[in-house]
Design a protein around this nucleic acid. Structure first.
Length: 596
RNA sequence: CGGGGCGUAGCGCAGCCUGGUAGCGCACCUGCCUUGGGCGCAGGGGGUCGUAGGUUCAAAUCCUAUCGCCCCGACCA
């Protein structure tokens, strides 16, 4: 049994000034963590206990479907070059040199290492499917670490990888993970949702993120209150209410109109007394892609959307398969539009053909650009748009007739209240933290790294892969985000550092002290994880600390002991039961089994 | 990467503008007291003021550089 007086649990009355989100404040105040550098934290006694329990739950559930490995955190450059990611990862990767000058990096994920093993060892279809996982520290040199343990540069990740003969096999492995993740997060006491996620430019076909709704989150999730549709904003679609096109004027063809100083959409809308839905917005980017050989490639990428819509850059980028977007500079706008910012429009822009999508080589016609039309503009007509001429717009512009584009695609952000694409119900939008991600990888790594097995017919086949991650610390932080009040937080017994804290209100009183010890022993004998607060502190101090540190149940041994009774307190609700000393173990055990 | 803010005792802060003995609250140590929600009294320890340079008789304070940490943005012309 643990005695508080002998432990290092450095609780703080005040939170450090730089903590913003609840989990950060409380993890520091409760003596769970201390910061070493930006995005790098030491986990003290309580945090370590809680994290070990989370890992244990993950391990128990994963062991039902997979085999645990333990892979290196330091990787040689060659392995990452084989997949092309040595250069693609850019500054997000921590790199180092050994004494001989050889390049190494700290692992960000382990696709390469797992695939390397598969490549060397897997020979026959008879060995598949395989699912391998590990729980390891991961390193990412985040451009901006923040929010305590929520966005850090070193963290613990459970990462799993599946190898199957074919897509049908991958479906099975994927579903196994989906189900396993649900069991894991249920056991951790999280309220979460599995959402459709953007599957990136890696040829992945399907992907789900497991999200926890909280204001501290950095992702936005669109969800439908009536059907089960839920998706990351980077993937979400919606049904739009119909909008009215303007009536054509004159001969119905594009017509210049003088719009002095009305560059912004709000201005032009007011000036012409139209709706922003009748205007075409233009956003011009240079897309960048780092090739496997480290060369940085560029492409002009121009998006046209309805005036009241906003670009989702992830969706846009996925169309060309790049890794980064930046907006065009003035000279570039001049080059591709021959017009000034504020008055840019699609008429006269020279679109590259659809077949060239994904082709990053320089075209002969250097003034052409990839032009993406948002799907919401398909079928629209007589719209207002910039004329690529200072202080002029066009009216009567109809997509497809008056200008052409490379491709039409969904590239806009869904807005709260738009109809669910399944059932039409208005969608809700909420901030969320990503705690897990499952992902059909396809052949990217197995192919680039040359992993093959022989099938029944003796033919070489490239296995199809999946990868599946869980952020261990994020389980802890999102539990705290979901379960806290002004005084502290409470964790579900399964992941709390202790199930119950026994608090004799005055240890100078030999009777209270002895009873506290006896109760703590009895609780332990009943299978509870107990901490006895045997510190010579005033009751107020001990109560405050007990409330702070995340332990779901408390037993107060105090005044009522003379009647043979103690108090059992549920931290989440403060609900208090008066219980005879002899009944404490059974009652507490029952409470623990039922959860917070 | 862009913008902003902050570095003074373990934590939270004041002092800086207007240069002149480094302070407050909490925490910590000792003693007494107290014991159901961070109790009281008395005494005490702890800081080369992020670092480096400069200005000055004198720098926490002014100037320059640098490092670190936090926040916002990297979204529409």
């Amino acid at each position: 049994m643990h005695r508080w007086s002998q432990l290092f649990i450095p609780t703080l009355r005040e939170a450090p000034a730089d903590a913003e989100v609840a989990s950060h404040k409380f993890l520091v105040r409760a003596g769970y963590i201390r910061q070493l550098a930006a995005g790098i934290y030491s986990y003290l006694f309580l945090a370590n206990r809680s994290i070990k329990r989370i890992e244990q739950i993950v391990r128990e559930e994963m062991d039902k479907i997979a085999q645990e490995f333990y892979l290196p955190a330091i990787h040689p450059r060659e392995v990452w070059e084989a997949s092309g990611r040595w250069s693609v990862m850019g500054d997000n990767m921590f790199r180092l040199k050994d004494r001989k000058g050889a390049d190494l990096c700290l692992g960000m994920t382990e696709e390469e290492i797992m695939t390397e093993i598969a490549r060397k060892e897997l020979r026959s279809y008879k060995q598949l499917p395989q699912i391998w996982y590990q729980i390891q520290s991961k390193f990412r040199d985040e451009p901006r670490p923040k929010s305590g343990l929520l966005r850090v540069r070193q963290f613990t990740m459970k990462d799993a990888y599946s190898f199957d003969m074919d897509a049908a096999g991958l479906d099975v492995s994927y579903q196994k993970h989906y189900d396993t993740y649900c069991r894991i997060f249920d056991r951790c006491g999280l309220r979460y949702v599995a959402v459709e996620a953007h599957s990136g430019s890696m040829g992945g076909s399907q992907s789900h993120e497991f999200m926890v709704y909280t204001e501290a989150g950095e992702d936005l999730v669109a969800s439908c209150p009536s059907c089960h549709y839920a998706a990351n904003l980077e993937k979400a679609t919606s049904r739009l209410a119909p909008v009215q096109d303007l009536t054509p004027t004159g001969n119905g063809l594009p017509e210049l109109i003088h719009t002095p100083g009305k560059g912004a959409i709000a201005d032009i809308v007011a000036f012409l007394e139209i709706s922003a839905t009748q205007d075409i917005k233009c956003v011009a980017y240079i897309a960048q892609k780092t090739a496997a050989d480290g060369k940085v490639l560029h492409q002009p990428l121009i998006a046209f959307l309805r005036g009241d819509h906003t670009v989702n850059e992830t969706k846009l980028l996925a169309i060309v398969g790049g890794n980064e977007l930046r907006t065009m500079q003035t000279e570039e706008l001049e080059k591709y539009f021959n017009g000034p910012a504020g008055f840019l429009g699609p008429v006269g822009v020279n679109p590259r053909p659809k077949e060239k999508l994904g082709d990053w080589s320089d075209p002969a016609d250097s003034r052409s650009a990839f032009v993406i039309l948002d799907s919401a503009l398909e079928g629209r007509g007589n719209m207002i748009c910039g004329a690529n001429k200072l202080d002029y717009h066009y009216r009567n512009v109809t997509p497809g007739r008056d200008f052409h584009y490379t491709v039409a695609a969904d590239i806009r952000n869904v807005v709260e209240g738009e109809g669910c694409s399944n059932c039409g119900t208005p969608l809700k939008l909420g901030k969320a933290v990503e705690i897990g991600h499952i992902f059909k990888l396809g052949y990217k790594y197995s192919k680039s790294m040359g992993a093959t097995v022989l099938d029944k017919d003796g033919k070489e086949v490239t296995p199809i892969m999946g990868s599946y991650g869980i952020g261990i610390e994020r389980i802890l932080t999102s539990c705290i985000e979901q379960n806290h009040d002004d005084n502290g937080f409470w964790l579900t017994p399964a992941i709390a550092p202790f199930h119950v804290v026994v608090v004799p209100t005055n240890v100078a009183d030999a009777k209270l002290s002895a009873a506290g010890l006896e109760i703590a022993n009895a609780l332990e004998a009943a299978g509870c994880d107990v901490i006895l607060d045997d510190r010579d502190e005033r009751p107020g101090v001990k109560f405050k600390d007990a409330d702070l540190v995340g332990i779901p149940f408390r037993v107060n041994v105090g005044k009522k002991l003379v009647e043979g009774k103690v108090e059992v307190v549920r931290r989440s609700t403060r609900e208090t039961l008066e219980v005879a000393v002899a009944d404490v173990p059974a009652i507490v055990a029952k409470l623990i089994a039922a959860g917070v």
